[in-house]
Computed example of a mutant assay.
Amino acid sequence: MIPRRLLSTLTAALAEVPAVALLGPRQAGKTTLALAVADTRPSVYLDLESEADRTKLADPELYLAQHADKLVILDEIQRAPQLFQSLRGLIDKGRRRGQGRGRFLVLGSASMDLLRQSSESLAGRIRYLELGPLDAGEVEPRQLDALWLRGGFPESLLAESDAVSLRWRSDFIRTYLERDIPQLGPRIPAETLRRLWTMLAHSQGELLNAASLARALAVDGKTVARYLDLLVDLLLVRRLAPWHGNVRKRLVKSPKVYVRDSGLVHALLGIADGEALLAHPVAGASWEGLAIEALIAAAPPGTQVYFFRTAAGAEIDLLIERPGERRPWAIEIKRGLAPKLERGFYAARETVKPIRCCVVYSGRERFPLAEGIEAFPLPELCAELARP
């Protein structure tokens, strides 16, 4: 098992609150992480996609009350959202008996319905944690090229060949479109959603142009917004918001949009191997998306993230506002081994006045690039961001 950064955070959360929701896309490693926690304490694991386990919960309060002294792990909770009401009663009874922490760990795909059910029933009793695929701060530096090409889903990253990995990702996309999304409720034509997902991969890291997407899909703008919201809720797509400081500049107001896993970007575009990736126009944006996901995952809980761009061309790829710091970190992302900064970055730095300026690049050494600006390998900057 590749160690996951979130393990210590999950363990700490279970020591502080009655219920923890571990949310993320399918196959990201949620069950493996939950079972690692289960190995350290008395636990019971129930998979709600299993008919036998769902039968055990025909009377959930009776069954779960029998395991009041154990951590109860409920996998694929979106299959039985009605359980949240029962969990609320059991948590409140446990609190009155002094059993108020670490009772339940629920795992599921992050959908609007799931969040709505739990927020209505477990307000003040649950903490949400997000587990994405493996990122550049969690793998060995020698695996970074494979991570970029194949993405961070463990079965894809660790496949025996690039061809096997690509087939896995293609199957993953098809299963999401044809099975998983319909189970969550929305009735969306699978082919339409695939076309949107593919168009987002083609425009990786660009400003959202909903009108252009709507025209290409022959639907209206509200429909595109609804489809995009779904992909964001499932943690498959990220909308990176623009930074709006108190500055007298004409700032860009549209978000940037990224398909969050680089391997899915490449599968949607039919990129089969490293040579094809390096020759493809999406290579730079794909690397940028990989870096952004890793840096956001490495940053402390409560961190806010943005990009900065003005109409005059001043731009910073990523601004990270860590809790307790009055000014953000400014991070520029470059794919090559000899990173160079454009005039727009320096202009943006004068406006934002960041606490630190960093450049991520593809090399292996950290070095000063200019006055007040350091160049970092991606894994090393992930570690730097995680420090207090």
Rank of each mutant, 00 (worst) to 15 (best):
107 L>I: 13
282 V>N: 02
282 V>P: 02
134 L>S: 06
268 L>E: 02
354 P>D: 10
319 L>Y: 09
270 G>A: 10
117 Q>S: 15
137 G>A: 09
112 M>W: 11
266 H>T: 03
168 W>V: 13
385 L>G: 01
86 S>F: 08
66 Q>S: 12
345 F>H: 03
31 T>P: 10
22 L>F: 03
250 R>P: 01
366 R>A: 11
18 P>D: 06
331 I>Y: 00
366 R>W: 00
354 P>Y: 07
65 A>E: 02
283 A>C: 10
8 S>K: 13
260 R>P: 00
379 P>M: 04
360 V>D: 00
253 K>S: 15
262 S>D: 02
57 L>A: 04
262 S>M: 01
201 A>I: 07
231 L>C: 11
101 R>Q: 14
178 E>K: 14
264 L>D: 00
317 D>Y: 01
117 Q>E: 15
236 L>F: 11
21 A>P: 05
203 S>G: 05
1 M>A: 12
243 W>I: 07
230 L>T: 12
140 E>F: 03
359 V>D: 00
295 L>P: 01
231 L>H: 07
214 A>H: 07
190 A>W: 06
180 D>C: 06
316 I>K: 03
362 S>I: 02
273 D>V: 09
64 L>N: 06
112 M>A: 15
257 V>Q: 04
151 G>Y: 00
294 A>T: 00
361 Y>D: 05
379 P>I: 08
158 L>H: 03
251 L>D: 12
263 G>P: 00
23 L>E: 04
8 S>I: 09
221 G>P: 06
83 L>Q: 11
101 R>A: 11
314 A>F: 05
382 C>S: 11
130 E>N: 10
112 M>G: 15
173 I>L: 15
379 P>F: 01
154 P>H: 02
337 L>F: 08
59 D>V: 14
159 A>P: 00
311 A>W: 13
346 Y>A: 07
349 R>P: 02
239 R>V: 04
264 L>H: 02
285 A>H: 14
134 L>T: 10
354 P>I: 14
307 F>D: 01
31 T>V: 09
385 L>V: 13
169 R>Q: 10
290 L>N: 01
329 W>C: 08
230 L>G: 05
89 G>N: 10
163 A>G: 06
131 L>S: 04
279 A>E: 11
257 V>Y: 00
217 L>R: 09
337 L>N: 13
219 V>W: 02
221 G>L: 13
265 V>L: 06
45 Y>H: 13
99 Q>R: 14
168 W>K: 11
88 R>Q: 15
277 L>R: 15
256 K>R: 15
250 R>H: 15
314 A>S: 14
297 A>T: 04
